Simulated scan of single mutants.
Amino acid sequence: MPAEYSSKTQSETAAQEILRCDPVDIDTLVGAGLPFEYRSGVRYFDLNDLYNLGMYSGRSNTQPELAFRMLFRFASRPVERLLSEQTWDFRVLLECPECDGSAPWRFEAPDIDRFGGRLADVTEPRPSARTAEYTATVTTTGARSPLVAPALRQLTQDYLEAGYRWQMIPPAMQADYELVHRLGATSCIAASLFLAERFRAAGYRAEAKRGWFCGVLGGALDLPHACVEVEDEDGVYKTVDIAKAQLAARLSQDTRDFQELCIGSVYNKAIPSTAPGDAPLAHHDCGSALPVHVRADIQVKR
């Protein structure tokens, strides 16, 4: 991670657990340039650096490799499962660090009516200090609606073939999509902002939108998510989930149907929000300059 976006919070012991390695391996990585900070005689590392190292290590036993293989098991199954209705218990905890007192919250809620979904049992965050909660029952569904405009399909394919490597990147850095791409990397937010710009330059209405990716390790893994919403030449708004198509191709050889679904269609594991791709999901009007932490817990409703 570039220094301005790096947060070295993981101890050397944690790094060994994430990478499934020993102290000698950590010394080798540090010698090769892995950034760290000394605090009280202990080396600390950036979590994103560690996850990206693990994911591309080829060792097959690191935490990132195991987690992402489990995450994308669904992508090699029949995609019809992703087109049916699915209901979720949706709970988001909002935390304002260094809060300056009780104040209203602004939360970019699920925005699913346009794609055949619906909300029920909504509880909005009330004015409070430090923490608040949003809950709802969210029903999603899927629909096949592949891109039909040749220009849109070509721009999408050009991006997929450009050689950018998907990486875990802090959301604030993802919004700086020019920096991300200069580094040869990509992520869901950076890719969506970049592709939306290309679609608009080609004459189409397009916007990157943030949201949530559901059903990930039983709700234990909270991944930032974004996609592009674009008005196709048939007058229908389509979603291009470019990063999920990239990740599926990277992690499994048997995901072509899912990759195609990502190029225009909607599926029941994605919940769009009202937030633009480069905007935060929540804000607290208390006056604190620090961003609100947004932690989602999204479970299948049984």
Rank of each mutant, 00 (worst) to 15 (best):
M55A: 12
R81L: 09
D121M: 02
A143P: 02
S57H: 07
T139S: 12
G116C: 06
A32M: 12
M70R: 14
A143T: 11
L50C: 04
A149F: 05
T28A: 15
S128L: 03
R59K: 13
V30Q: 06
S76E: 15
L29Q: 09
P104Q: 06
R81A: 15
A103C: 09
S128E: 08
L82P: 00
W105F: 08
D22R: 14
D113H: 13
L71H: 12
S57V: 02
E37N: 08
R59D: 09
A143C: 10
P150R: 13
P64F: 10
R20F: 03
G41F: 10
A32N: 12
A32L: 14
N48Q: 11
R69S: 12
A149C: 10
C96A: 09
S84G: 10
F36W: 13
R126S: 14
T141E: 04
G101W: 08
L19A: 05
P23V: 01
E98F: 09
N61M: 04
N52R: 07
G33W: 10
W105Q: 04
D49T: 01
S40E: 10
F36K: 02
S84W: 00
N48T: 05
F45S: 03
D121F: 01
A120M: 01
S57M: 09
G101K: 06
R91Y: 00
E80F: 01
F72C: 06
T87H: 00
G41I: 07
G41S: 08
A103E: 06
C96N: 02
L147G: 08
L93W: 03
M70Q: 14
I18P: 02
D113R: 12
G58C: 04
R91K: 13
E37K: 12
E124F: 11
T141D: 01
T87C: 05
F68A: 03
S84D: 11
V42C: 03
G33L: 05
C21K: 09
E17F: 12
P125G: 07
E124D: 14
D111Q: 08
L50H: 05
P110C: 02
L83R: 06
Y134F: 15
L29Y: 15
E108R: 14
E95G: 02
